[in-house]
Design a protein around this nucleic acid. Structure first.
Lengths: 115, 115
DNA sequence: TTTGACAATAAGTAATAACTTATATAAGTT
DNA sequence: AACTTATATAAGTTATTACTTATTGTCAAA
């Protein structure tokens, strides 16, 4: 399964704005390396290297079509990150409720002091 | 808003397993630096440095209590990442539908060839 | 069958990251 | 006041990252 290692790679992949932009482009559908490279001021090898990072992280897959290698989004990696983040989100909701209670009881106490 | 820069920092912060473990611990509630450091074989300065990374990324906030500096989860950063990932998730759902159609039409074609 | 387009890989470089040890600071304790 | 606890900061080291240019491999088309 290697979920732990993949999370390292997946989050690391998303930490780069170029790679996030590539993923955003792929969210609109399949694209070749040259198409993906076009919007950037980087060389083609640079984009190929970014794509390798995204593939190794399980966020992108490739297809073969003549000399082209069109990429598209891969489900696995995205889902893994999503699930991990869900844990934090849940905790935040729970803690927020707890904070509400604390604040409420502090209000109560304040009123008591004033009277 | 600085959302772009923060996403860099936020995703980068999550790419380290120590920092993910710290966040997982904080998901259960506030903790001091020493408490957070305990499970690891790292020195205290190392943990303080990880915490700085998490704070700079907007994933953690600190409170002052005597000489202690208890940390807890921060909402902003987590939500930012979550929203960005939601975009990918949506795209995957949409593309999956599309793929279903493609596969279906390929099956059709195959049947035609065989007959 | 040469030429051009598409893409991957290799080697080099400069910046950054993740640690370490050593030291500093500030509050709590005796 | 001296000692301890809790934490931060600084400086140094090594590994990794994000690029670059140069080169190679493949297919397609003239």
């Amino acid at each position: 399964m290697e979920i732990g290692l993949n999370l390292d790679a997946a989050f690391s992949a998303l930490s780069d704005p170029t790679r996030r932009a590539i993923l955003a482009r792929l969210a609109e559908g399949e694209a070749t390396v040259m198409e993906l490279a076009a919007p950037f001021e980087m060389t083609q090898p640079a984009i190929s290297q970014h794509l390798k990072v995204l593939e190794d992280a399980g966020l992108v897959v490739r297809r073969i079509e003549g000399t082209k290698r069109p990429r598209r989004l891969a489900k696995a990696g995205v889902e893994a990150m999503d699930q991990w983040l869900a844990m934090l989100r849940k905790a935040l909701e729970k803690n927020y409720d707890r904070l509400d209670q604390v604040l409420a009881s502090m209000e109560q106490q304040k009123k008591g002091e004033q009277q």
